[in-house]
C-alpha cells in the first residue's frame, strides 16, 4: 500500500487531528504530543503509514489527537495490539503510547514480554506516577510515602517499579528518558527511537498538574545524563546508570543491537489446495 508513494515533508501541525485534547491545561502530555508530531514530521512518515496504539488513561488518549491511524483499546493491552499490528504489517510505523499504570501495572506482563520479544515498536510511556483518570491513586511508579491518595491514605509502602531497569533486563533494544517540558529534546529522542530497529522504550516524565502539582518542579530536577554515559551499547554500564541515577538523568541511556522479531510473511506455496495433501489417506 505504501509503494510508489512520495514522502511529503509535512509540518508537525499536520500530524494533529481536529480533536482537541481533554487533558488539563498544564499537563505534560501536551509536550509529548508536540514532540511526537515533530518526530513524525522529521522522519517524513506519512500520517497514513503510522499507527499509534494505546490502552486506557490520560496519555492513552494520544491517538485521537493525531492524524495518523490510531487504536484506543482496553486498559493495559496496547503493546499486545501493537505487536499484532506490527507483525502482520511490518511496513507500518507502529508506536504505542500510554501511562505508568497502563503499562507497568495492568499491562506489566506485556511490557516484560514485548521487551523480550523485541518487535520494531516504539513505546512512549508518559510517567506521572499517578492514575489521573480515576482521580489520583498511586501507580507502580509512585513513591512509597506519597499520602495524598484516598485509596492508600498512608502511602503504598511499596517500592516503585523501575521501568527502564526492567526494560533493560527484559531485553528492550533502546532505552531513553525524557522530560515533557523539553519538547524539542523529546522529539529528537523519539525520532531516534522510531528509527532504531527493535523495541524502543522511551519514558517521558510528564507532570500531572492536577494530582501531583509538585511535579512542575521536574523541569528543574531532571538533567541530561553526561554525554559519555549516553548511548552505551553495554547493558552492564546502562544497568549501573539506571540503578544509580535516581531517575533524574534524561537522554538515550542504552542502544542495543539484538535481532528484531519479525517473522517473514512470504507464501511458500502457490495453491492453498496443496494443504490437502497431508490429510489424504
Amino acid at each position: 500500500m505504501t509503494n510508489d508513494k512520495i514522502a511529503l515533508q509535512l509540518q508537525p501541525k499536520e500530524y494533529k487531528s481536529a480533536v482537541k485534547p481533554v487533558w488539563c491545561p498544564g499537563c505534560g502530555d501536551f509536550g509529548v504530543l508536540g514532540a511526537l508530531t515533530k518526530a513524525l514530521a522529521g522522519l517524513k512518515i506519512q500520517p497514513e503509514d503510522a499507527a499509534v496504539i494505546s490502552g486506557i488513561g490520560c496519555s492513552s488518549r494520544m491517538p485521537t489527537y493525531l492524524s495518523t491511524y490510531g487504536f484506543h483499546g482496553v486498559h493495559g493491552r496496547a503493546l499486545a495490539v501493537a505487536t499484532g499490528l506490527k507483525v502482520a504489517r511490518p511496513d507500518l510505523t507502529v508506536i504505542a503510547t500510554g501511562g505508568d499504570g497502563d503499562g507497568f501495572s495492568i499491562g506489566g506482563n506485556h511490557f516484560l514480554h514485548t521487551c523480550r520479544r523485541n518487535p520494531d515498536l516504539t513505546y512512549i510511556v508518559m510517567d506521572n506516577q499517578v492514575y489521573g483518570m480515576t482521580k489520583g491513586q498511586a501507580s507502580p511508579t509512585t513513591e512509597p510515602n506519597w499520602e495524598r491518595a484516598k485509596l492508600t491514605p498512608s502511602g503504598t509502602g511499596i517500592n516503585p517499579f523501575q521501568p527502564l531497569a526492567i526494560a533493560l533486563a527484559s531485553g528492550a533494544n533502546f532505552i531513553a528518558r525524557c522530560s515533557s517540558s523539553d519538547s524539542n529534546g523529546t522529539a529528537r529522542v523519539l525520532m531516534e527511537a522510531i528509527r532504531h530497529p527493535g523495541f524502543s522504550m522511551v519514558q517521558v516524565l510528564s507532570p500531572c498538574v492536577t494530582f501531583r502539582p509538585e511535579q512542575r518542579e521536574w523541569k528543574r530536577s531532571l538533567i541530561p545524563a553526561p554525554e559519555d554515559m549516553q548511548r552505551t551499547p553495554d547493558p552492564a554500564e546502562a544497568a549501573r546508570l539506571l540503578m544509580t541515577d535516581e531517575g533524574v538523568y534524561t537522554g538515550i541511556l542504552y542502544v542495543g543491537d539484538r535481532p528484531v522479531y519479525q517473522p517473514k510473511l512470504k507464501s511458500e506455496i502457490d495453491n492453498i489446495a496443496t494443504l490437502d495433501e497431508e490429510f489424504r489417506l
Binding site: 488539563c24 498544564g26 501536551f30 508536540g34 517540558s181 523539553d182 524539542n184 523541569k219
Partner: peptide, 17 residues
C-alpha cells in the same frame, strides 16, 4: 535555544484551567 525550547515555546506547562 538555551534549554532546548524556543523563548515563546515553553509556555504550555504554566497553563491552568
Amino acid at each position: 535555544w538555551e534549554g532546548g525550547e524556543s523563548p515563546e515555546g515553553g509556555l504550555m506547562e504554566e497553563a491552568h484551567y
